[in-house]
Amino acid sequence: MEEELAKHLKQLADQFHGLAPVKCRELAFEYAEKNNIPVPANWTEKQCAGQEWFGSFLARRHLSVRTPEATSLGRATAFNKTTVGEFFENLAVVMDRNTFPPHMIYNVDETGVFTVQKPQQVVTEKGKKQVGSITSAERGELVTVVCSESQAVLAGSDYGPMTVF
């Protein structure tokens, strides 16, 4: 039954709807109660699993508590195999049509940073590189950061120039 609970928590985190530790403990208590599993008295008093059990559960099921990266719903649904494949097909067409010398190729990245919003910690699989949480883009003030760098310059030194707008 613990394995089912762990699988459910991992699935929620993968779908950008990870549960906070307190909610996981409440869910574990409800799960035990519905399945007539005997629980300690302090679980019944607090209506959630104990902190010691939760820590052991995380270790047994290779889970950890992490702070997710805020991810808008549009971005979460747009990043899929089809759109990524389409991007690389378009890139191949442009690279075949033009012969750009290395010093004319730049890597540019843009990101939006919200000044107010911070997602709560969620339970997810241990060792996972990136954890996301669906959030509203309407809260707080958005600051846009754009960085660019030339790979040709980076190849010749440890640190290449970076332009920030």
Rank of each mutant, 00 (worst) to 15 (best):
M1N: 14
E3V: 06
E3F: 06
E4I: 11
A6M: 04
K7C: 09
Q11G: 13
L12M: 10
D14Y: 12
D14H: 13
Q15L: 14
F16T: 08
F16Y: 11
G18Y: 04
A20L: 09
A20R: 14
A20V: 13
P21N: 03
C24T: 09
C24G: 01
L27I: 02
E30G: 07
Y31W: 15
A32H: 11
E33T: 10
K34M: 10
N36A: 12
N36V: 01
I37S: 04
P38D: 09
V39R: 02
V39Y: 03
P40S: 04
A41N: 11
A41C: 02
A41K: 14
A41I: 05
K46S: 06
K46G: 03
Q51P: 00
E52G: 06
E52T: 14
W53Q: 01
F54N: 00
G55K: 12
S56R: 12
S56Y: 11
L58T: 01
R60N: 11
R61T: 07
H62Q: 15
H62W: 11
L63Y: 07
L63H: 05
L63E: 01
S64H: 13
S64F: 13
R66Q: 15
P68R: 07
E69Y: 14
E69Q: 15
A70T: 03
T71L: 14
T71Q: 15
S72L: 05
L73V: 13
G74F: 04
R75E: 14
A76M: 11
A78Q: 09
F79L: 15
F79P: 00
N80D: 14
K81V: 10
K81C: 09
T82W: 10
T82M: 10
T83R: 08
T83A: 07
F87K: 07
E89D: 11
E89Q: 15
N90M: 13
N90F: 08
N90P: 01
A92I: 06
V93Y: 10
V93S: 10
D96K: 13
D96H: 11
D96R: 10
R97Q: 14
N98F: 12
N98C: 08
H103I: 03
M104R: 15
I105E: 11
I105H: 05
I105Q: 10
N107D: 13
E110Q: 09
E110H: 01
T111S: 10
T111K: 04
T111I: 02
V113S: 03
T115A: 08
V116Y: 14
Q117E: 10
K118D: 04
P119E: 03
Q121G: 15
Q121H: 12
V122L: 00
V122D: 01
V123D: 02
V123M: 04
E125T: 03
E125R: 11
E125I: 04
K126Y: 14
G127V: 00
K129Y: 11
K129T: 09
Q130N: 08
Q130H: 08
Q130T: 07
V131A: 05
S133D: 03
T135P: 01
S136W: 01
R139D: 11
R139I: 12
G140P: 02
L142T: 06
V143Y: 06
T144S: 07
V145L: 05
C147G: 07
E149D: 06
E149I: 13
E149M: 14
E149Y: 10
E149N: 11
S150W: 02
A155T: 03
G156T: 08
S157V: 08
S157G: 05
S157F: 03
Y159T: 12
G160V: 00
P161R: 08
P161T: 08
M162T: 03
T163D: 05
V164P: 01
V164T: 06
V164Y: 04
F165V: 08
